[in-house]
């Protein structure tokens, strides 16, 4: 295997990032995150008949639901045409005639898009966090930073899946269809299936099998990472009953998330060759 030239990777990544800065994608997504975060933080407890900024655990619990829906969708939309789009337009051939390997091109694409997504996520939720600190105090800043970091990791996991889809798909139309299907599966359907299995099995394998199945969905990993630390919220979500504390180690969960970033990228690299 030939040596990786990071200069070329940087050129591709830089172009992808600057393209998103220039067309105001980063700004738009950042603003959406900030507004949604503030609105949800304020109205998060409206169902219980109260509005206003509350404690950090309730705020983060509300934001987790937002992030699970929004971030994977944005990441999938961002990455689904990264390779297939170049191929369909005809620009891939010219790029590959340059002194750059396919892996470097793929890595550059991923890193550039990941930077755009990461900056939008950190800036969007970071700005909301700065405003929230005035309301709920700075004591919970550690949890909030953890929430932002895990939101970035969640985005990268779905971005990695999107890049993989982009490599495998024959055209942009199919790539977009598969990307949306992935979002439906992991964000909407997966937990329903697990719940159904749990009910049908009458809880027989809940302590052994169920936690592992949760780790097979990056959205669930993100949820556990952010919820498990708060006792009250954990009880509300019912996680305490089905997820053992030993598996709730943040480093283990973080590693599982990193696996979800690297595995689809690995498949994409293998197929792109």
């Amino acid at each position: 295997m030939s040596r990786i030239e990071f200069r070329e990777v940087g050129v591709i990544a830089g172009k992808e990032f600057h393209d998103r800065l220039r067309n105001r994608w980063v700004l738009a997504v950042g603003v959406v995150f900030t507004i949604f975060a503030l609105v949800i933080a304020y109205f998060g407890a409206a169902q219980q008949g109260a509005v206003g900024f509350r404690s950090i655990d309730v705020t983060i619990a509300s934001l987790v639901s937002l992030v699970i829906y929004l971030v994977p969708l944005i990441a999938l939309i961002l990455g689904y045409d990264s390779i297939v789009g170049e191929r369909e337009r005809g620009s891939l051939e010219l790029l590959l005639s340059m002194p750059i390997t396919r892996f470097e091109l793929l890595l550059g694409k991923f890193l550039g898009l990941a930077s755009a997504l990461g900056v939008a996520t950190v800036a969007g939720f970071g700005l909301a966090g700065v405003l929230l600190i005035y309301q709920i105090g700075s004591g919970a800043i550690f949890h909030y930073v953890g929430f932002i970091v895990s939101a970035v990791l969640l985005g990268l996991a779905f971005l990695s899946m999107a890049v993989m889809v982009s490599v495998l798909a024959q055209d942009r139309m199919r790539a977009s269809g598969v990307a949306i299907a992935l979002w439906f599966f992991y964000v909407l359907i997966y937990d329903l299936i697990l719940l159904g299995v749990l009910v049908l099995s009458e809880g027989r394998f809940s302590m052994n099998f169920f936690p592992v199945l949760l780790l097979l969905n990056p959205a669930d990993i993100f949820r556990i990472l952010n919820i498990f630390g708060f006792e009250d919220v954990r009880q509300i979500y019912g996680l305490a009953a089905v997820f053992p504390e030993t598996l709730a180690n943040p480093w283990l969960l973080g590693s599982a998330m990193v696996f979800w970033i690297l595995a689809p990228l690995g498949v994409a690299t293998w197929r792109f060759k």
Partner: peptide
């Protein structure tokens, strides 16, 4: 193919038949 040809590519120019450039 391989690393040696990668260096050679720096001294190769290519104009494809279906040229696609970046509109932005």
């Amino acid at each position: 193919r391989g690393a040696a040809f990668r260096e050679m590519r720096r001294s190769i120019g290519y104009l494809p038949e279906s040229l696609a450039l970046y509109d932005n």
